[in-house]
């Protein structure tokens, strides 16, 4: 497994595996987006309580899944970069942290737009919203740190360390925010929370899963594309270094 991953760090080999993967997942993502959007916007019923606003769920909830999933993948990559020194894993963090931040931003913004008709306000200091906001800060920190050093390798290592410590810290944040929320929660929010989290009906599950699949394949396609960009820019950098010093 680790040898196979290591072999992928060879750019030529990476392209051989990556290019077909890129095309297949782009096509799958486009198809799932078309199907999922049709289901979500046209072919599914409006909710009894929330009317049309329930349709926001189909882009909001999968974005939350992607935001968390991307972070776990960053932490895993950080581990394999720091322990087994897989260069590709280090580059993965740099490549995919902005994608994770984008999904987190989508989750926050659509959640806020969803909150206006259902809660009557753009922002509620709900435990989940607050946790996602903190997750966004974590992503922002990783992106900023990875770019802050003149020495590229040092930036990769620092970003990997931050991803790892952040992963350890995530349960603490989650616990503290939940605890804080029950301490300060106004009673009205909990009833609204139930309204937003209805038992998911089957007519809702299919569009939800279709959109989740569309996001996932988009994520894979972006991972291949952005990783290859990172590999190329690393090569350009080291060629420049050789010219300057050799």
């Amino acid at each position: 497994m680790s040898n196979a991953l290591f072999a992928l760090a060879n750019p030529a080999r990476f392209r051989k595996v990556g290019m077909p993967l890129l095309w297949v997942s782009s096509a799958a993502s486009a198809a799932l987006f078309a199907w999922g959007l049709w289901l979500a916007l046209l072919a599914s019923p409006a909710d009894y309580l929330q009317q049309e606003a329930v349709r926001i769920m189909y882009i909001h909830v999968p974005a939350a899944w992607m935001a968390l999933g991307t972070y776990s993948s960053l932490a895993f990559a950080a581990l394999s970069f720091l322990i087994w020194r897989h260069t590709l894993a280090g580059l993965y963090i740099r490549a995919m942290a902005p994608v994770g931040a984008a999904f987190t931003a989508i989750c926050l913004i659509t959640g806020s737009i969803w909150g206006q008709p259902t809660w009557g306000t753009w922002w509620v200091w709900d435990a989940r919203l607050t946790s996602v906001l903190v997750l966004f800060f974590l992503y922002a920190g990783i992106i900023a740190l990875a770019d802050a050093f003149e020495n590229r390798e040092r930036g990769l290592k620092a970003a990997a360390w931050l991803s790892l410590i952040g992963m350890v810290n995530l349960p603490v944040i989650k616990f503290s925010v939940d605890w804080w929320n029950t301490l300060h929660q106004p009673p009205s929010v909990s009833s609204f929370a139930r309204m937003v989290e209805p038992a998911v009906d089957k007519s809702m599950l299919t569009p939800l899963l279709a959109m989740a699949g569309a996001y996932l394949f988009l994520f894979i396609a972006l991972a291949v594309l952005r990783l290859e960009s990172e590999i190329m820019s690393r090569r350009i950098e080291s060629a420049r270094m050789r010219r300057n010093h050799g």
Binding site: L37, L41, E52, I109
Partner: peptide, 27 residues
């Protein structure tokens, strides 16, 4: 249905589309 809250749906899908398009385009 009668289209209550439909503006919010357009706004949410629009923003999502813009963010995804931006990151794809930049990549």
């Amino acid at each position: 249905a009668d289209g209550t809250y439909i503006h919010f749906v357009w706004a949410a899908y629009g923003v999502t589309g813009i963010i995804l398009a931006a990151i794809v385009l930049m990549s």
